[in-house]
Write a protein that binds this DNA or RNA. Structure first.
Length: 438
RNA sequence: GGAGGUGUCGCCUAGUCCGGUCUAUGGCGCCGCACUGCUAAUGCGGUUUGGGUUUAUCGCCCAUCGCGAGUUCAAAUCUCGCCACCUCCGCCA
């Protein structure tokens, strides 16, 4: 959700943001009308309610006096007064009830519209669709396998050869887009987890193991029930959702809280399984474990002052690079275009790893500055010398297991199908420097 | 899953039986002011959150007593449903 004051003072800012995203500009016009209507209805209710309270205050004492009244004349007189008040109170009560219902309906209508508005885009973000990103930097050099004299195997072949990934049995048990990590593959994930958590804690992030099943409020608050809703698993029987990232439980963690500014920034590193329906991606990445329904991920999540958010965003990107650098994988960093930000992000940087067998860079991390958007929806505020106001939240991938494993296997393979473990990971692999075909 | 108990504006707490002077009591903490060599102590005032109105300020109004519905002219208080926590029983990684 966006600061409603902007709607009243500068609605064109909202329109421009929607335009850049390729989303409805007319929505803002509807919002302007709904906002006025809601305030009018609310005001009407407030006034009627005030009248009702004032009237009610007269009835109490009068009835007290009535009870004490001795002689019949004063009793009759009081009774008459009470009856008259009660009669007007009765009609007023009906009006109050109607006004309350109208105000409530207007409020709900307004809220429903707000939920459809995506976050204000950062004006630095390149405008356009998925393909309109700008490349910020390319790091490392893709290996020249032709010069080395052998064609690279893809991660599916390598995974099979090494006994590290079992996709066929994943499909047998759970259907397509499920897999088993086995032997060295499983150890690799555990090593990556340890490396990621070691790095995270060295930077002061608080390690967290989070729920993977959350209530609708957490899902909605993080903005995943908008356009992204079709990719979310819902547990019908219990009205709960399987998270697609631990961003959801980490954002919900402080919902409805007011955090003292002296505690900020709060930085977490969450570890959880992630579940994605991948609806509408039929035919995309059907081979391998680039796009799967369930995987594990270490996610960084930050709560900070809004004025610190951009610096914090840069910091998250830096930590992501540090991790991928340590794995010695060639990559590039892109500034994601406005049409591809998702509803919550104002700005987003992706890191894309070089995948030799695809001859392409593929996303392995993503960091978003969601400014105050999620905080408003989840009612997370901060308190400083200037009072109470929403804070900013940010998130960034530290290590999404399957894609990192893909990048590791493919980039560090040797002619015989063995894979060199990068030095940074070896301490967490029991000193192992190469995994070889079984 | 079953039985019982609890839920009040940072923390603790009064109020709930018996609806209306509750505009929610008191203490602690915190903020401001006064007093005092300093500190402490004391005194006075303030201290939930959200919205509206006004905006140069002060102020005024509405909602908010776990959440939601209901009864009533009127609900912290009565009724129903839900949630969380605690105790015990049952079941179970």
């Amino acid at each position: 959700m966006i600061d409603p004051t902007i709607l009243r003072t500068d609605p064109d800012r909202l329109r421009e943001s929607q335009r850049r995203r390729g989303e409805s500009v007319e929505l803002i016009d509807e919002l302007v009308v709904a906002d006025v209507t809601k305030r009018q209805e609310q005001q009407r209710f407030d006034e009627l309610r005030n009248e009702q309270k004032l009237l009610g205050k007269q009835i109490g004492p009068l009835q007290g006096a009535l009870k004490k009244a001795g002689d019949d004349t004063s009793r009759a007189e009081l009774q008459q007064q009470v009856d008259a008040l009660m009669a007007s109170a009765q009609t007023l009560a009906d009006q109050v009830k109607a006004a309350e219902a109208a105000a409530g309906a207007a409020g709900e209508a307004l809220d429903a519209l707000w939920l459809r508005v995506s976050n204000l885009v950062n004006l630095e973000s390149p405008v356009g669709g998925e393909a309109d990103f700008t490349v910020i930097e390319e790091v490392g050099t893709p290996r020249d396998f032709a010069a080395e004299g052998f064609p690279p195997r893809d991660h599916v072949d390598l995974g099979e050869l090494l006994g590290a990934i079992d996709i066929e049995r994943g499909a047998k048990v759970s259907g397509s887009r499920f897999f088993y990590l086995k032997g060295p593959g499983a150890l690799l994930e555990i090593a990556l987890l340890n490396l990621a958590m070691q790095q995270a804690t060295s930077h002061g992030l608080i390690p967290m193991i989070t729920p993977a099943l959350v209530l609708p409020s957490a899902m909605e608050g993080t903005g995943f029930l908008g356009q992204a809703a079709e990719n979310v698993y819902r547990i019908e029987a219990d009205d709960m959702y399987l998270v697609g990232t631990s961003e959801v439980p980490l954002a919900g963690y402080h919902a409805d809280e007011i955090i003292d500014a002296s505690e900020l920034p709060l930085r977490y590193a969450g570890w959880s399984s992630c579940f994605r329906r991948e609806a509408g991606s039929y035919g995309k990445d059907t081979r391998g474990i680039i796009r799967v329904h369930q995987f594990d991920k270490v996610e960084m999540f930050v709560y900070c002052r809004p004025e610190d958010a951009e610096a914090e965003h840069a910091r998250l990107l830096e930590w992501e690079r540090e991790f991928v650098d340590a794995l010695e994988i060639p990559y590039r960093v892109i500034d994601v275009a406005t049409g591809d930000l998702g509803s919550s992000a104002a700005r987003k940087f992706d890191m894309e790893a070089w995948i030799p067998t695809q001859g392409a860079y593929r996303e392995i991390t993503s960091t978003s500055n969601t400014t105050e958007f999620q905080a408003r929806r989840l009612r997370i505020r901060m308190r400083d010398e200037n009072g109470t106001r929403p804070l900013a939240t940010l998130n960034g991938t530290l290590c999404a297991m399957p894609r990192v494993i893909v990048a590791l296997l493919e980039n560090h393979q040797q002619a015989d199908g063995s894979v060199v473990i990068p030095a940074a990971l070896r301490p967490f692999m029991g000193g192992l420097d190469v995994i070889s075909p079984t």
